[in-house]
């Protein structure tokens, strides 16, 4: 399912956070958004999720203007979003339960997805008993069990150590490629400040300007072959060339953000 931003602007009082952003994610496409720290990347995702409404412009989901929460989207949050009082299985079962599934059906669906993210034997654990990587897997299963046609991901792996992170990136790609939901492969909008992560995962990378009034200023098609191994693909000359091209654009914005931060 497609996701389109049509000249979306967001103001908080006098401050313009997002300034006329237009871009779109095609059905089944994996798009990453990179930008300097604090430019409003997460805000874009919250707009796509319908957690915030734009001040002007609109977000289109499958061609229809979005009002209220985006029911077609699953959201993988950056922070600890699991319910700490539920076990891993009950956390994954939460979505189906909210939708009215019986406890048994929800638990069965949860168990299937726990197995798919490699946590088959850990369903009884509470979030505090799991490692950061396991909690991220649980969050992923919790989102995917509902089979949303659109997946919104907000720097989901930024808190993980490098090794766990690359494992999770590979698993995400494998699950995403294998997971043909009701409406085909999921469209992914992935936010990160890590350019290497963006290139190795995506079909397309969009670069945001430094804030305030952030908006896309460039986009790059990543025509690297799939399936990919995120650790190996980083060593290829094509990847390096792509990284240099994108960094040439991104660097200026990072510097702007850095100077604005240093001046403030």
């Amino acid at each position: 399912m497609s996701l389109t931003f049509d000249t979306v602007t967001l103001r908080f009082g006098a401050a313009e956070v997002v300034g006329g952003a237009s871009f779109s994610v095609a059905p089944g496409e994996f798009v990453s958004i990179v930008g300097p720290t604090g430019c409003g990347k997460s805000t874009l995702l919250n707009l796509a999720a319908g957690l915030i409404a734009p001040s002007s412009g609109q977000v289109l989901v499958g061609g229809q203007p979005l009002t209220g929460l985006n029911r077609r989207a699953g959201y993988l949050f950056q922070g600890e979003s699991l319910m700490p009082w539920r076990t891993a299985r009950d956390n994954v079962a939460a979505g189906p339960e909210f939708a009215g599934a019986s406890r048994a059906a929800a638990a069965a669906a949860a168990q299937t997805w726990l197995a798919r993210v490699g946590l088959a034997g850990h369903g009884e654990k509470y979030p505090h008993q799991m490692s950061g990587g396991m909690r991220k897997r649980t969050q992923l299963a919790q989102t995917l069990v509902l089979d949303p046609p659109i997946l919104l991901m907000d720097e989901p792996f930024s808190a993980l150590d490098v090794q766990t992170r690359q494992l999770m990136e590979n698993e995400l790609l494998a699950i995403w490629q294998a997971d043909m939901g009701r409406s085909g492969r999921k469209s992914v909008l992935f936010i990160t400040h890590d350019l290497e992560e963006a290139i190795s995962l995506s079909d397309r990378v969009i670069v945001l300007s430094a804030g305030p009034a952030t908006r896309p200023i460039a986009e790059f098609a990543i025509d690297l072959p799939r399936p990919r191994d995120v650790a190996e693909i980083r060593l290829t000359p094509a990847f390096r060339a792509m990284e240099e091209r994108i960094w040439a654009v991104l660097r200026d914005e990072v510097l702007k953000a850095y100077r604005a931060g240093a001046a403030a």
Binding site: A49, L51, L69, R71, A73, G74, Y75, F77, Q78, G79, E80, S81, L82, M83, P84, W85, A94, G95, E97, F98, A99, Q139, Q142, T143, L146
Partner: peptide, 29 residues
């Protein structure tokens, strides 16, 4: 935590379900 609340909303929790499944357990702790 707002992130837990937003996650539950994105998972489809109705206002009623938010009270029973998120606010109540958080408060009971």
């Amino acid at each position: 935590p707002p992130v837990v609340l937003n996650a539950a909303r994105m998972l489809g929790a109705s206002p009623r379900q938010l009270v029973r499944q998120v606010y109540l357990p958080a408060a009971l702790s």
